[in-house]
Write a protein that binds this DNA or RNA. Structure first.
Length: 573
DNA sequence: CTAAGGTTTCCTGTTT
DNA sequence: GAAACAGGAAACCTTA
C-alpha cells in the first residue's frame, strides 16, 4: 500500500525513520489519523532498535550512560530527594519563559555548585540535561501550556493539551497556565541509544558502553558531559521533528504544532506574543489549504511568517516515497554523495504512486493514491512557488555547505528585521566543514538547503574519501571562535548550551559552559577540556581582536566586528 | 627541521 | 567560599 506519508529527502545520510512518531500528546488525539498509522506501517518496523550499534562515532567524554544511570537513581534530578513532576514541569515552563531553572526546586547532584549565571539561579548542568531526558523518567510526559516551546533540541515543546482526560495530571502553576502531564509510559523505550537515522546524526551509543565517570578538576567537581545532548533528548527531539518526515499535507495536528513551534523557535519569534496554540486543531491538510488571511487571523503578528515558511517549505524540498529494501537495490543507482536521494526523482516518480514529489525548486507532480494529479489541490502549489527566493528563507543549519545551494535571501533580513524586530538566522561560514566528529553535531532533520546533485560524473570513491579526510582535518583544526559561532548557529545547542544575547552585535552567552567545553573537547579529541581552559583560549582572542570584552557580565562574550565580518565573508564565499 | 599560529595547561591573583 | 575572570608562561600540536 502506498504511503500516505512520503518522506522528505533531505539528506543522503538521513535514512528512513524507523520509529513511528509517538508524541506524548498522541493519547490526547484519538484522531489517530490514518496518516500516522500509515506512516507507522510504512516504517520498516516500529521501535526497531536494531540500528543500535556501538558506533564508531563515539563521543569522547560522552557520559550518556552515566547520565541515564543517574536518572534512574534519581541522582540526576535531586540526589536522594524525590522527583516531583509538577515542580519539575513548573520549572521547565519557567525555564522556557525565562531561560532559568529555579534552583530551589532541586538540590545539586554533584555536591558542588555549578552556577552559570550571576544570579545563581541557572540550574546545574547535569540537571539541565535532564530536561531532555525528562521524558524517559517521567514516562513521556508532555507539557501543555501556553508558554513558548523550548528548542526542538531541548525536546520540550509545550502547547495546550486539553483532550486527554485520562492518565494525566492537570495542574496549575503560579502563572495560572494550565499544565497537563501525561503518565503514559513506554517501557520499551531504551534509554541509551541513538538511531542512526536520528536527525542528530549518526552517532549511536549502546547501553553497555563504558561509563565515563566524573573527572576531578582542579577547581570544581567537573561533571562529565556528553559531547552531545543526551540520547534521550535526541530521541525526543527526533520525535518532535516527526513533521520532517511527512509531506505537510500529511501532517497530523501534532506535527502541525511541532512545526509551528519549530518555526517560532527558528525565526526567533517573540514568544510573549506568539499564539502558536491557535493552530492546535489543524491538520496538515487544513494548514495547506489556508491562505495568508487565515494565518494572520490565527496568529496576527507572526501569521505571515508562518504562512511564508510553509509556502517555502512546500517549495523547497523533495519528497520521495520510501522504498522497500528490494526496491532500493533494484531501482537505485549507486548512491552519489551529491544526490539527495538514493533514487533519482524521475525514477521514483514514474514508478511510485501515493506520494508527492516536489522538485527542489518547484512543484512538479503530485500523485495521489489513485494516480490522479493533484497539483492544484493546494494553493501553495498553484502559486508554483514563485516566491521561493522571496522575503523569507527557510532557515536551516547547513553543516555540509559544499553541496548545498544557498536559498538564503539577503532581502529577507531587513524586511523582517524591521517588521518583527528580529534578526534572521545567520548561517555558518560557507567554508565550515561538516560535522563528522564524534561529538555528533546534529544534522538537522530538515533543511530546505537540500544538496543538489552536482553536474557531471560523480567522483570516484578515492576522491570522496580524500575529501572527507580533508574535511575531518578541517573539523579537527577548526578554530575555537569558529566552533563557538557554529555552535551558536546550531539549534541543538542554542539556546541549550549557548545563546545569542544580541546576534546582530555578536554578543553571546554561555548557558552551560562546561557542556560547551566538553563539546569543544570532543571536537579536539580532548576529554580533559574544561570551561576554564576554553575560556583561557577565548581570552587570547581579546588581544587578537576576535573577541571583545563584555565588562561586568559573566559568561558573556562578544565577537568583534572583524570576526563577524570574517564569518559573513566566509559565508559569502 | 624549523618557525609560526593556535591553542592547552598550569598557575596566581582578582572580581563577582 | 566558589565560580568566573584575567593574564603570564610554557608546553604542545599542526601546518607551511
Amino acid at each position: 500500500m502506498p504511503s500516505a506519508s512520503p518522506l522528505y529527502t533531505y539528506s543522503s545520510v538521513y535514512t528512513e525513520p524507523q520509529t513511528p512518531y509517538v508524541l506524548s500528546g498522541e493519547i490526547r488525539n484519538n484522531e489517530t489519523d490514518c496518516i500516522r498509522s500509515t506512516s507507522t506501517a510504512n516504517s520498516v518496523s516500529s521501535n526497531n532498535h536494531n540500528n543500535i550499534t556501538n558506533s564508531n562515532h563515539h563521543c569522547p567524554g560522552s557520559n550518556a550512560n552515566l547520565y541515564n544511570m543517574d536518572l534512574k537513581n534519581g541522582n540526576g534530578f535531586s540526589g536522594t530527594s524525590e522527583y516531583d513532576p509538577v515542580k519539575y514541569l513548573s520549572a521547565m515552563a519557567e525555564q522556557s519563559l525565562t531561560g532559568n531553572f529555579t534552583r530551589s526546586l532541586f538540590s545539586s547532584s554533584c555536591g558542588n555548585r555549578d552556577s552559570h549565571s550571576t544570579s545563581g539561579n541557572m540550574y546545574t548542568n547535569i540537571e539541565h540535561y535532564d530536561r531532555g531526558a525528562f521524558s524517559s523518567l517521567s514516562s513521556s510526559s508532555s507539557i501543555a501550556s501556553s508558554s513558548p516551546p523550548l528548542s526542538p533540541a531541548s525536546s520540550c515543546f509545550a502547547y495546550p493539551n486539553t483532550s486527554d482526560p485520562g492518565s494525566s495530571n492537570d495542574f496549575l502553576t503560579n502563572d495560572n497556565a494550565s499544565y497537563h502531564v501525561t503518565s503514559q509510559t513506554n517501557p520499551n523505550q531504551p534509554s541509551n541509544f541513538l538511531r542512526n537515522d536520528s536527525p542528530f546524526g549518526q552517532s549511536s551509543t549502546s547501553s553497555n558502553q563504558s561509563i565515563v565517570g566524573f573527572t576531578e578538576s582542579r577547581t570544581a567537581c567537573k561533571k562529565s558531559y556528553p559531547s552531545c545532548p543526551s540520547e534521550q533528548a535526541l530521541l525526543d527531539s527526533d520525535r518532535l521533528l516527526s513533521w520532517t518526515r511527512h509531506h505537510p499535507e500529511n501532517w497530523s495536528s501534532s506535527d502541525v504544532l511541532d512545526w509551528i513551534f519549530f518555526v517560532a523557535q527558528e525565526r526567533g519569534l517573540d514568544m510573549q506574543d506568539f499564539r502558536g496554540e491557535n493552530f492546535q486543531n489543524l491538520t496538515g491538510a487544513q494548514l495547506c489549504q489556508m491562505g495568508l488571511g487565515d494565518f494572520t487571523q490565527l496568529e496576527p503578528r507572526f501569521g505571515r511568517i508562518i504562512y511564508e515558511m510553509l509556502k517555502n517549505l512546500l517549495c523547497g524540498v523533495s519528497f520521495r516515497k520510501p522504498l522497500e529494501p528490494d526496491q532500493m537495490s533494484t531501482q537505485c543507482e549507486p548512491m552519489s554523495p551529491f544526490s539527495s536521494s538514493p533514487c533519482p526523482p524521475t525514477k521514483s516518480r514514474s514508478s511510485l504512486q501515493g506520494y508527492s514529489h516536489t522538485s527542489y525548486h518547484g512543484v512538479e507532480t503530485d500523485v495521489n493514491s489513485n494516480g490522479i494529479a493533484q497539483n492544484e489541490t493546494s494553493f501553495f502549489k498553484q502559486e508554483k512557488c514563485t516566491n521561493l527566493q522571496s522575503d523569507i528563507d527557510i532557515t536551516s543549519y547547513d553543516f555540509d555547505l559544499d553541496d548545498t545551494p544557498c536559498l538564503a535571501s539577503s532581502q529577507c533580513s531587513d524586511q523582517y528585521q524591521n517588521e518583527y524586530g528580529m534578526y534572521p538566522m545567520q548561517y555558518p561560514p560557507q567554508d565550515t566543514p561538516p560535522m563528522r566528529t564524534p561529538c555528533c553535531y546534529p544534522t538537522p532533520p530538515f533543511t530546505a538547503q537540500l544538496p543538489r546533485r552536482r553536474p557531471g560524473r560523480p567522483r570516484v570513491k578515492g576522491l570522496i574519501e580524500e575529501e572527507r579526510a580533508t574535511k575531518d582535518k578541517k573539523v579537527k583544526n577548526q578554530h575555537l571562535w569558529e566552533f563557538i559561532y557554529e555552535t551558536l548557529m546550531n539549534p541543538a545547542y542554542n539556546p541549550q548550551f549557548l545563546r545569542w544575547e544580541n546576534q546582530r552585535d555578536g554578543v553571546f552567552r554561555f548557558v552551560q559552559s562546561e557542556a560547551v567545553a566538553q563539546l569543544w573537547g570532543g571536537r579536539k579529541n580532548n576529554e580533559n577540556m574544561t570551561y576554564e581552559k576554553l575560556s583561557r583560549a577565548m581570552r587570547h582572542y581579546y588581544r587578537r581582536g576576535i573577541l571583545e570584552r563584555v565588562e561586568g557580565r559573566r559568561l558573556v562574550y562578544k565577537f568583534s566586528l572583524k570576526a563577524m565580518e570574517r564569518v559573513r565573508e566566509n559565508r559569502h564565499h
